[in-house]
Design a protein around this nucleic acid. Structure first.
Lengths: 134, 134
DNA sequence: ATAACAAACGTTATATTATAACAAATTAAG
DNA sequence: CTTAATTTGTTATAATATAACGTTTGTTAT
């Protein structure tokens, strides 16, 4: 039994704490500004922590926003199947937890002869609240 | 009858020609270097053309790569439903044209009360060729 | 044709996002 | 304990993208 995900380093823990407390996805440099009081001084320190946290599935990158969000699903698993809903108006982002969807996509095959090991899906639209406002 | 997509401007046409000739996705600055002989001098000229071409559905952005690829599907439609397969080894990218998949995703609803207008899906794995090599 | 408006252009400067390279310190495993 | 692997700290720089401005071109409606 490996325990890769058990012990986070100091910087990794600092960055993860911040991301987990946040209401939405955070950008790398915004993370940097917010952890400077905790001793992290350079972008690279943040990016290295982010890289590791992504690798072990604690956070995900929202590619269309270059931002990072805590994993709310299967906390300690390496994430190779991610789906998000993104509001075009208020920018609210939420990870979609839907077993039918994930089953469907994990088993998806086309005629390319390619076996997919990982996917990332981003849905865009208006969230409930923004729909009412408009 | 609008004809938005009919007439591309000079810069838009230059950029589109290059992307359509390319074998894979191109990065913005690589596009820039390749169109300098045609009179485009600044990044912004490229980015503006890209923005327009995306808007009218002639090209797509591969978000995980910050790269741009010609649309091979419904050429002149504004694209709000995109799916790609990406080889982790050779970086080969291909747009997935699969009506079952697109129907499934276009009609997808979860319990968030959000109606999705657009999605982008990226699959990762090893392509046929790279699978053999490894 | 021409006025009025929108779209695209050219240009300079700058903002934002991310990585290279290297040496030192810390931690995990044999 | 000592070797290997990981993480750190640091400086510098690469890569990606947009702001702001004034000009030019293209469209539409008189």
């Amino acid at each position: 039994m490996t325990q890769k995900q058990e012990h986070l380093s100091k910087n990794q823990q600092i960055v993860l704490n911040l991301i987990e407390k946040a209401k939405g996805p955070l950008k790398a440099y915004s993370i940097l500004y917010n952890v400077q009081k905790r001793g992290i001084k350079a972008p690279l320190q943040v990016y290295r922590a982010l890289e590791k946290l992504i690798e072990i599935g604690k956070i995900h990158k929202i590619e269309s926003k270059n931002a990072f969000i805590a994993c709310k699903n299967s906390d300690c698993e390496i994430s190779k199947a991610t789906a998000f809903s993104i509001c075009n108006n208020c920018e609210h982002v939420k990870e979609i937890k839907n077993s039918k969807l994930s089953k469907y996509l994990s088993n998806f095959e086309d005629n390319s002869g390619m076996k997919y090991k990982k996917y990332n899906l981003e849905f865009f639209g208006l969230c409930k609240i923004c729909k009412l406002k408009q």
